[in-house]
Design a protein around this nucleic acid. Structure first.
Lengths: 226, 226
DNA sequence: TTATCTATTTTTGTATACCAAATTTTCGCG
DNA sequence: CGCGAAAATTTGGTATACAAAAATAGATAA
């Protein structure tokens, strides 16, 4: 079975997405069709299709004839996004408590062990990877395709803003504990509990990110009118 | 402020979407680029972008070089979809209970009055329109852009299947009562109550649709091996 | 100097033509 | 009737051209 992701348009889309998430292209930055075509050694056609795709997922804002830019979330937009992501992750965890296979549970536990090790070592990059793996595993465990799709699109919108909070004292260790609580509830097949714990966990993440972004926004406002 | 929907690609996308929702193009039907280009009097370029957009929203399945078809949901896919839609609409109603403006509340009440009149007259088409308006108004009342976006993409996937249950004895009147209960909770600013009521309401809708689709699927299976 | 209007240059949206690769269809043959 | 090969079709992608809209630069007036 062949993946339609083989198309250049999709490769370009994931490449741009990666650049946005990794911070190479910052919110508000314009996406120039011709420049992107040159950069990725393709013609404008696949680039345009890639931009359309990213616009549909919300990672990019389409401004009609005025071009496309990396989506810029305001503080209120970030709050909106984290509300949705936390609720959806809560629902996913609730379902996962009933539907996860033993393999998936093992995977989630292993991922949290990686989180723990990374937290102990203070290795932020490793923690981010393991943390992502943990959440992905729970989301996969809900066995609801549409929910998974909605979650990936919702989460990806918040990713560009995670860079502002990669290092936060005590954040990693606390997360490990919250992950463990979710896993306990899942093991006990307590769907409601797992959902609530996961929702709260994501909300905490979000609050910290929102705090930082809010701070940065105020700073940039002060800096622009001295 | 100009709408990027001015582009032919977007016009074509909404046109195709309307055709799919209205049942002109049924699940599984292939979308031929050249035929669509001819039908809408445009070149292949905007058609391709339109298909990409619809594929990104999930209304169309992209099968790589084997073309694109109208998405076909299995029973389990429909169950997945309605679970997500009901949860999201519940969240929207919960937020709406706290955030709706007086105008929006009036609009929702007016929409349900239209539902009531249509139910009384047995006018299915009018009911569908009013019902849509009611839900749209509640969703608008949550004042969360991302949630609204996620809801529109989730709901649109289920729309093609609503045709199978347009007429269901007693369905319309029952819906009017459930709408009224949601509105009562919103007026009482009871977010949790409104959310639960809305979630249940949508779930009931979904169950009926799933029942019918399930029935149709069994029939078509029997019919295909006589 | 600064503001504003205009002319120039870019960039996007669309149309065409064309090609290669993949898929489907057709057709002939066993 | 079934199977496999050739032909036709369809998609993915490139290149090019061009009109319309935007952004930019430049010139002019206050």
């Amino acid at each position: 079975m062949k993946d339609p992701t083989q198309r250049k348009a999709d490769k370009v889309a994931t490449a741009i997405e990666a650049q946005i998430i990794s911070g190479v292209r910052k919110p508000g930055a314009r996406l120039d069709e011709r420049a992107l075509a040159t950069e990725f050694n393709v013609s404008r056609t696949p680039v345009r299709e890639a931009i359309r795709k990213l616009a549909a997922t919300g990672l990019v804002t389409d401004k009609g004839r005025r071009g496309a830019v990396v989506r810029h979330l305001t503080v209120s937009g970030l709050l909106d996004a984290f509300l949705v992501v936390s609720e959806l992750e809560g629902i996913a965890a609730r379902l996962a408590a009933r539907r996860m296979t033993p393999d998936e549970k093992t995977g989630a536990e292993a991922a949290n062990l990686c989180c723990q090790r990374a937290a102990h070592d203070g290795d932020i990059a490793a923690f981010n990877v393991a943390n992502m793996a943990f959440h992905d595993q729970i989301i996969a465990g809900c066995h609801n395709t549409l929910l998974q799709d909605q979650l990936t699109t919702s989460r990806v919108i918040t990713f560009p803003y995670r860079h502002y909070v990669t290092q936060f004292p005590g954040y990693m260790l606390k997360s490990v504990g919250e992950h463990a609580a979710v896993l306990d509830a899942i093991r006990a097949r307590d769907g409601a509990g797992a959902g609530q714990l996961m929702c709260d966990h994501v909300n905490l993440q979000g609050e910290q990110i929102v705090d930082v972004v809010h701070l940065l926004e105020q700073q940039s406002q002060k800096g622009s009118q001295p």
